[in-house]
Structure formats: structure tokens, C-alpha cells
Simulated scan of single mutants.
Amino acid sequence: MRKSLLARIRWTRIGCILCGLVAAGVVGFGYYRDTTTTQLVEYRKTVEAGDTLWGIVGQVATNREDMSRLTWQVAQDNKIADPGNLQPGVELVIRVKKAREL
């Protein structure tokens, strides 16, 4: 008596092959992601009376930027300990990803 097709398939071997293919895909994607470079554009803005860090970053950011993360990054880059107490006359450096030009 012959076994059915499902009984004859070696599921363990197929599972190992599929896991290997997925692992190779993950490694390939990681390599691709790390080799693509993101171009940054640097803006300089002098703080004026009444300005907030969120407002200044909002003037520069595109709609694709995460405002919270970008505001945090600007505070870190410019060594701002208290973002609520910006002093007029301080020059901020803001780096954002270059937008695709149409």
C-alpha cells in the first residue's frame, strides 16, 4: 500500500528551506537598507523672542517628518537641556532629510 502524497512530503526539510530563504531575505534587506544613504539638509535658525523649539522645527519639517522625533533630535544636536527656555539670539542647527525634488 502506498502512502498518500501528504504523508510522503518531508515537512521538516521544507520548513528548514523556507526558514533559510526568509533569513536570506532579511539579511539582504538589511544590507540594502544600510547601503542606501540618506541625504540631510542643514538649516540654521536664530531664536527670536517668543519662539518655541516645536514652532521652529515645524517651519523646517516636511509632512513626512515625525515632529516629536525631529524636535528631540534638534534638542540633542544643539545640547538644549530645557526646550521650554530658549534664549533669543541662539542659533539652532536643524538637519532634515532631503525632500525628493520634483
Rank of each mutant, 00 (worst) to 15 (best):
R64A: 14
Q87A: 03
K97R: 15
G55F: 03
T35E: 10
L18I: 15
Y31R: 03
T37Y: 15
K79H: 04
C16P: 06
I94R: 01
A61Q: 06
T38M: 06
E91M: 09
L40S: 02
I17D: 04
V96N: 11
V26G: 15
R100S: 15
E91T: 03
D34Y: 06
V96R: 14
L86V: 06
Q87L: 09
E48Y: 11
S68G: 00
T36K: 11
Y43E: 09
K45D: 09
L40M: 05
Y31Q: 13
E65W: 05
D82V: 07
N78A: 11
T38Q: 07
C16Y: 12
R13F: 02
R10N: 03
I17S: 10
L6Q: 08
G28M: 11
D77H: 08
I17L: 05
N78R: 10
V60N: 00
N85K: 11
E65A: 01
C19Q: 15
L70D: 06
P88K: 02
S4H: 13
G20K: 09
F29C: 14
D77K: 03
A81G: 01
E42G: 07
T35Q: 08
I80T: 15
Q76L: 06
T36E: 11
A23K: 01
N85H: 09
L6T: 01
L6I: 02
E48N: 11
G50H: 11
Q87I: 01
V47Y: 14
I80W: 01
A61H: 08
N78I: 09
V60H: 08
T36L: 14
A49G: 12
L21H: 15
L5K: 10
T52G: 08
L86Y: 02
T52V: 11
W11Y: 12
L18V: 14
Y31N: 04
L86C: 02
L21P: 14
Y32H: 02
D82F: 09
D51M: 14
V27N: 03
Y32V: 04
E65I: 00
A99G: 05
V27M: 05
G30E: 00
L40Q: 05
I56Y: 05
K98W: 00
E91K: 05
C16G: 08
S68Y: 10
K45Q: 12
T35F: 07
G20T: 09
I80Y: 10
C16F: 07
W54N: 12
